[in-house]
């Protein structure tokens, strides 16, 4: 895949980090405001997709990165399951998905027990998954064109 013009590349350099930070914000405030892991993860992935679209020539390098993304994805899901299953042990009464951390004050960033942690995990997972899907589809398309 060919990249785009220098103007697009420069503008992307400015915009992509902002999009990424906005995604992070949505993930971290998922338990307090609309949004959460999935929405934030999609926004974070869109910043990566924007960069790939603008700088198309890096795609060849990214093919090797795909296994790393897959690792991140599986690891995130495993982390989610482990946190959910920890509730079985830590809650004392064998409750799956129990909120075993302290709930804190409503409205603070550090509150709601395990929910922010699981939001972060879901965000990582969704970001990795959508980027993987995008890379996989683009790579296939390139092979078809050959």
């Amino acid at each position: 895949m060919k990249g785009m013009t220098i103007i697009v590349k420069k503008v992307t350099q400015f915009i992509a980090p902002i999009i990424f930070i906005f995604g992070l914000y949505i993930v971290f405030y998922g338990h307090l405001s609309p949004g959460g892991g999935f929405a934030g993860g999609v926004i974070m992935a869109s910043s990566f997709i924007l960069q790939i679209l603008a700088n198309g020539e890096i795609l060849d390098k990214l093919r090797q990165e795909e296994s790393g993304l897959e690792f991140l994805e599986s690891g995130a899901i495993l982390g989610f399951i482990i946190i959910a299953a920890l509730g079985l042990i830590l809650s004392g009464s064998f409750v799956f998905f129990s909120n075993f951390l302290h709930n804190g004050v409503i409205g603070r960033l550090l509150s709601a027990g395990i929910i922010p942690i699981e939001n972060i995990i879901v965000g990582t997972e969704v970001c990795a998954a959508i980027t993987t899907i995008f890379i996989a589809l683009v790579v296939y398309k390139d092979e078809v064109a050959l």
């Binding site: 897959e70 690792f71 599986s74 690891g75 899901i77 495993l78 399951i81 482990i82 959910a84 299953a85 079985l88 799956f96």
Partner: peptide, 17 residues
């Protein structure tokens, strides 16, 4: 009872890693 879901899901992703 939850082991019926936890065990296959967790082992799937352990396999993947």
């Amino acid at each position: 009872i939850p082991l019926y879901v936890i065990v296959p899901l967790a082992s799937a992703f352990i396999m993947a890693i």
